[in-house]
């Protein structure tokens, strides 16, 4: 379900406006606080919910993981490199999750794409995507397959 903003918590900093991939988080012309201008167009990507430094944006989670009447809230702590979720069901049951959002300090391991050598003409003519052979380990022999890794696939539907 689309996002909504608690006006009393919002400080109108613009982080959600900046991050919304759908460009539907805007600033209210009367109160200068953020609001979702077009809930129908919300992808429910949670980008604004996670980015809000005031935790002022809320969203109702999908019915497939919690029935109506629940609350799902998130706290993103980038200095700690963590994101926490708290799902509170309508009967009071709680589920708390904690996960990393980065495993290296922010900004320290950015790929130096500028320093990469560009593709040769032969590579441009090839069916492979740029740098694909390297990343699918063709350089180390051949494409990694189930067979080359001595794995088998069981046919049929199974659980």
């Amino acid at each position: 379900m689309p996002t909504f903003v608690y006006m009393t918590s919002c400080d109108g900093c613009g982080h959600c406006v900046d991050i919304c991939p759908s460009d539907i988080m805007h600033i209210d012309p009367v109160y200068r606080r953020a609001y979702n201008i077009e809930p129908d167009m919300c992808w429910e990507c949670y980008a604004c919910v996670k980015a809000c430094p005031q935790n002022a944006i809320d969203v109702r989670g999908y019915a497939d993981f919690a029935p109506l009447g629940h609350s799902v809230r998130v706290r993103r702590e980038e200095e700690k490199g963590t994101i926490s979720w708290r799902v509170k069901f309508r009967d009071g049951t709680e589920k708390n999750f904690l996960s990393p959002i980065t495993t290296k300090p922010w900004g320290k391991c950015i790929p130096k794409l500028k320093d990469e050598i560009g593709p040769s003409d032969a590579m441009k003519e090839s069916q492979h995507l740029y740098s694909e052979p390297k990343y699918i380990r063709m350089d180390e022999g051949d494409v990694a397959t189930l067979e080359s890794n001595k794995l088998t696939i069981k046919l049929g539907v199974y659980y």
Partner: peptide, 25 residues
């Protein structure tokens, strides 16, 4: 278990999106 990848990481990971002002309009 979910935090295994952060076990050896520094406690302060620095600033992520807060490194930049929100003005990428």
């Amino acid at each position: 278990h979910s935090m295994e990848l952060l076990k050896d990481a520094p406690l302060n990971m620095g600033l992520g999106i807060k490194r930049e002002r929100p003005n990428h309009y």
